[in-house]
Write a protein that binds this DNA or RNA. Structure first.
Lengths: 223, 223
DNA sequence: ATAAATATTTAGATTTGCCTAAATTTAAAT
DNA sequence: ATTTAAATTTAGGCAAATCTAAATATTTAT
């Protein structure tokens, strides 16, 4: 099967919104796709005809297993291209989204498999999100909100919350990147900021907003 | 300015057909684009509105300088992607056309400049066709039909006439590739076949059809 | 439980890129 | 110089993906 760019974008959006809501509403989709609710209703009916979604009028939409499969392949392409743009072509990760958004719709299984091989079968994209494999399997990895972790823990950055230039600038300033290790020292009730040690540097305080964008896994208490 | 995929394909086709005919006819364009003459007339009017072509009804169409500029950038993208597919991802050059046809429409100047840098600013694509630079300048290179060259000349392959799997297979069999050196010994009146020495191998005879697909530059008479 | 507010769908249009069939223009042939 | 053939354009329509405005369903609040 081959789907139009518009169809692929709808499928991808439903997939992402489903991570948060069981049934995805028309308005949410319209918001995510920057389009009108009426247009969403139209397209959802087309996806229903193509047997990619469950849908009942007024009740929201949900990918069925065929739809999920399609979504995972689009996401695979998107994230492989992001990895390529950052690691091969030297893009910053705040610059890759729009380009990957276009590249993900290029249709060639040979292209994507050769790209995957060239890149060394990466498992995670530059933002820490997992890259589904050819079969659609995802390697999950701890992705715990930094806020809420117990003090003293040695942690490793596994993902970031958004891909804005502003966040990237902030992280660069602190010398934080994917895989960085840090220790959570304490948090302040006043403004929700937290004190951390990044690598072997001196303790620093980062804002609640910044901390809220960081996801980690546990490494242990010991140095 | 930003052009649709359909518009870009028309512009590119006009450019290529212009290499052969001063004014490009509606039927030729329709043939090249696998579409109907009436559709061509429609689109040509749109390109006229966008001031990319000269056009008079019944008289054919021709890119103006703005149109040429656009065409060269599309061709630049197409050929850079072909180079990438062959040299980085290991495609055969008979497999690249359709994929490059899609990739050439991805819109990001940063992408194409970084790709160009990553590839080392190649000047020729895998078929020997020149890659226009960012400004649209083309490095020309001798591209003489093998047939018609004087006997005894030492020649180097600079381009091939088509990109079919069949031609690639044939060339592989003879050990001919871009940059191969060969000497033309003689041609046979009977079927137009020619006898050549490829590199330091023994003389072989290749068919007129094959010879007609090869383009060369002169290196000299001496060994 | 009913009214008000919100969400969703339907109806009818628009744009892009394409089509077929008919009309028109240009080129070729007698 | 007409007639015939070929090429091109015009007219009218269609499908995909979108829109606005109006109608309908659902949810929330009184």
């Amino acid at each position: 099967m081959n789907y139009s760019v518009a169809e692929e974008n709808y499928i991808k959006s439903v997939y992402h919104l489903q991570q948060q809501w069981e049934r995805v509403s028309t308005n949410h989709l319209a918001e995510a796709l920057q389009t009108q609710p009426a247009s969403v209703t139209d397209m959802v009916k087309k996806l229903l005809n193509k047997k990619l979604v469950h849908y009942e009028p007024y009740r929201g939409v949900k990918l069925n297993s065929a739809g999920k499969k399609v979504a995972l392949q689009i996401i695979r392409k998107h994230r492989l291209w992001e990895y390529f743009l950052v690691n091969t072509l030297g893009f910053g990760w705040d610059e890759v989204h729009d380009v990957a958004e276009q590249l993900e719709h290029v249709n060639s299984s040979k292209l994507i498999e050769q790209l995957d091989r060239f890149l060394g079968h990466p498992q995670f994209d530059p933002h820490g999100d997992p890259i589904p494999d050819k079969q659609g399997n995802i390697t999950y990895r701890e992705r715990l909100p930094l806020i809420q972790q117990p003090n003293g823990q040695l942690l490793e950055i596994t993902a970031v919350g958004d891909e804005s230039p502003a966040l990237l600038e902030m992280l660069k300033h602190h010398g934080i990147e994917m895989g960085s290790r840090l220790r959570l020292l304490r948090s302040f009730a006043f403004d929700g900021s937290v004190e951390i040690i990044i690598g072997k540097a001196k303790p620093t305080i980062i804002s609640q907003a910044l901390a809220g964008c960081l996801f980690v896994k546990w490494i242990g208490y010991d140095e």
